[in-house]
Design a protein around this nucleic acid. Structure first.
Length: 566
RNA sequence: CGGGGCGUGGCGCAGCCUGGAAGCGCACCUGCAUGGGGUGCAGGGGGUCGCUGGUUCAAAUCCAGUCGCCCCGACCA
């Protein structure tokens, strides 16, 4: 490729709206063009990188025995009604009508369609197992697309769907896919964290996420330095510090004017936040839910939502509380156990400890010396706490650490929910009808590209991992007006090209500074400069993008050098 | 969905408050010079100021509506 023919220019001025590094760099390098909110066009260079990632995924999956299929983006809405996901996706689902007023959706994912495909082609246990995948565009009307390719409304995703006869088969397939994923990311040159994840609204038991660690990640990962424990903070568990056992003192009501927050309360009582009980009111399914947790901990709303099977949840408003005779700032479960319209939940952290401080359920009032079960009836404790840095690991009792990351892959065990709701059954050896066990395995292709840039850059630009770099060699001719330079460049370029090196030759009539800056910005692994200076030594100057020093290689030894690092 | 902001040559912005001939930088075109870190000089082309309506002798500027985009939060396989 000659740079002068390349479609797409690097930019000096990019929108101040681009916040994330990968978004900025991709705009500056002329990789992508925004067409609408969360909708991007890919220029040739970006698309080359994109195809590299796709092909690595494709090769690894094919090797594992999976088969590639293609599915429609346009899907009838009734498929989504049958799987009950029209409602659960809500406004995120792009919907449209055709000229006959038939309702359609733009697929945000393809479980429904693949299940339909399998249903019409699988009848017997002899047809199983199957592992099918697609690499296609998907649509989600995200409330807030952001950060360029990291969260778009139209995006490319590889989704694989597995179909097994029984749980054992699914478990094996799932483990196999985790290994395939590890090798995919390794082949992309990207170090990935495999973390335990919440399976979210899609359901299913086991679930793991593949995370590229970066500063701008939307996910918070909790990990243990000394054992292997790694989990998304949505899912992470930790060891609760057991409080020392004290003698139970008498429940006492204390006047606490305008003392409302946990911080105020612990200050007022000159006590640790660990000795307080925080009670937070949520609305779930139009029902008031009181969640009580030790004051030093935060509530994990994902865990909470899972108790209600993933139903929507929000904090109750002050008006709703007052309507139910609850006083914001002074709420606690003490003395309320007879109120049936409130659903009470208690975090595991309240299993131990005595003489807590909690709200008084009266204006300007708190209780001290609250004891469970003496003062609060608890039928059941749940894990409702958000893990954070500094807490103890449940596996090895060491301190947990935290890091930010971008989710680039996610694997689920779906079980039989789709096969049952959409009627994908097979006949087993004994003649009985059984639902097919499904798994699903996704990788966001554009997100991998963006996250790779997020993870690999410096102040000058991108530093592509060679495995996914659009070009391997960036040949720069400086002072091409000089015949010797021009001839040398052309001969080197033709030679590399003929020997199947992925090379781009900057043949533009631009100053050295412009060309070198563009080379740094685009970030291909090997930069080769040919100039009067290098030719004095019969050499080209080579600089690896990942290194800071350059060196000369004689032109007649170039081939030798390149094959040594290939 | 709540809060805030922005739409002016291809891109990034100023002008709007206080109405009166549409500007700057980058990019682009031409020429000359330069030739190892976004080089210099000279010349040039390109915008019905998002859209609709209103006020006014006169609207990029004021008013109303509308569409689009962005940021924070909520939300999110």
């Amino acid at each position: 490729m000659k740079f002068s023919n390349l479609f797409g220019k690097t930019q000096k001025n990019i929108s101040t709206n681009a916040e994330s590094i990968s978004h900025q760099l991709m705009l500056r390098a002329g990789f992508i063009l925004q067409i609408a909110a969360g909708v991007y066009a890919y220029m040739p260079i970006a698309y080359k990188a994109f195809r590299k990632i796709e092909n690595i995924i494709r090769n690894e999956l094919n090797k594992s025995g999976a088969q590639e299929v293609h599915m429609p983006a346009l899907q009838p809405v009734d498929l989504w009604e049958r799987s009950n996901r029209k409602e659960s996706y809500g406004p995120v689902l792009f919907q449209l009508k055709d000229r006959r007023e038939r309702e359609l959706v733009l697929g945000p994912t393809h479980e429904e369609v693949i299940t339909q495909m399998v249903k019409s082609n699988v009848e017997s246990y002899r047809d199983l197992p199957l592992n099918l995948y697609q690499i296609q565009v998907k649509f989600r009307d995200e409330a807030r697309p952001r950060a360029g390719l990291l969260r778009g409304r139209e995006f490319h995703m590889k989704d694989a769907y597995s179909f097994d006869m029984d749980q054992n088969g699914l478990d094996k397939r799932y483990d196999q896919m985790v290994e395939v994923y590890k090798s995919i990311f390794q082949k992309c040159g990207l170090p990935v964290l495999v973390v335990q994840a919440d399976s979210g609204a899609i359901g299913g038991k086991d679930s793991q996420e593949f995370i590229l660690t970066t500063d701008v990640g939307e996910d918070t990962i909790i990990y243990c330095d000394s054992c292997k424990y790694v989990a998304n903070s949505e899912k992470a568990v930790f060891l609760h510090e057991e409080l020392p056992i004290e003698d139970e003192l008498n429940l006492t009501e204390v006047l606490t004017p305008s003392v409302k927050t946990i911080e105020d309360v612990s200050k007022f009582f000159n006590s640790d936040t660990k000795k307080t009980i925080k009670s937070v009111m949520y609305m779930i399914n139009d029902e008031l839910v009181m969640v009580s947790i030790r004051g030093d901990l935060e509530i994990n709303e994902i865990k909470l939502s899972n108790i209600f099977k993933g139903k929507d949840l929000r904090l109750a408003t002050d008006e709703e509380l007052i309507k139910s005779d609850l006083l914001p700032g002074f709420i606690s479960p003490v003395g309320l156990h007879n109120i049936t319209k409130i659903h009470f939940l208690f975090d595991n952290s309240l299993k131990t400890g005595n003489n807590f401080i909690s709200g008084g359920n009266k204006p300007d009032s708190h209780y001290s010396n609250v004891n469970i079960p003496r003062d609060i009836l608890v039928s059941e404790f749940n894990d409702l706490a958000l893990a954070d840095v500094g807490y103890k690991c449940t596996e090895c009792v060491n301190t947990l650490s935290t890091t930010k990351g971008v989710e680039v892959g996610h694997v689920f065990k779906l079980g039989t929910s789709y096969s049952e709701s959409l009627g994908a059954f097979y006949t087993d050896e004994d003649g009985s009808q059984k639902p097919i066990l499904m798994g699903c395995y996704g990788i966001g292709v554009g997100r991998v590209l963006a996250a790779a840039i997020e993870q690999n850059h410096d102040e000058k630009g991108i530093i592509f991992p060679p495995e996914i770099s659009p070009y391997q060699i960036h040949l720069v001719g400086i002072n091409l007006n000089d015949n010797a330079v021009a001839e040398s460049c052309n001969s080197i370029y033709n030679n590399l090209y003929d020997n199947d090196y992925e090379v781009i030759f900057d043949d533009r009539d631009e100053s050295a500074g412009v060309k070198l800056a563009d080379a740094d910005l685009m970030g291909f692994p090997i930069r080769m400069v040919v100039s009067l200076r290098s030719l004095k030594n019969n050499s080209v100057e080579i600089k690896l993008r990942s290194e800071s020093e350059s060196f000369l290689v004689e032109i007649n030894k170039l081939e030798e050098y390149l094959s040594s690092i290939r």
